[in-house]
């Protein structure tokens, strides 16, 4: 199982899942530079020709909702890590 940690002074994250998809609610506590990083994560998924692998919803007050298909969950977590929205990612068995 892939686990992750985030810096609670920068971001708050909450995850819910069912068999079909995983939903991640994100609230950025520091807008700069992390709001830009969120857009970069979205851009990565926008660039390919699959539309529903990860759907990004940008709300007011730096709140985000991401609905991701299970087969793209790892890609999403790694992209969040790459853009420093996560502090640590680890496989736990």
């Amino acid at each position: 199982m892939l686990t992750y940690q985030f810096d609670p002074t920068i971001v708050q994250m909450e995850e819910r899942s069912n068999n079909e998809e995983i939903e991640i609610q994100i609230k950025l506590l520091q807008s700069e530079p992390y709001a830009k990083h969120m857009k970069q994560v979205k851009d990565f998924f926008d660039r390919n020709e699959i539309y529903t692998e990860a759907l990004f919803y940008f709300c007011k007050n730096n709140e985000y909702r991401i609905i991701v298909r299970p087969d793209y969950y790892v890609d999403l977590i790694l992209m969040l890590m790459r853009h420093r929205l996560l502090q640590k990612v680890e496989w736990k068995y």
Partner: peptide
């Protein structure tokens, strides 16, 4: 179409 997927999903 991509926007439709996004809106209908939410």
């Amino acid at each position: 179409v991509p926007i439709t997927f996004s809106i209908t999903r939410i």
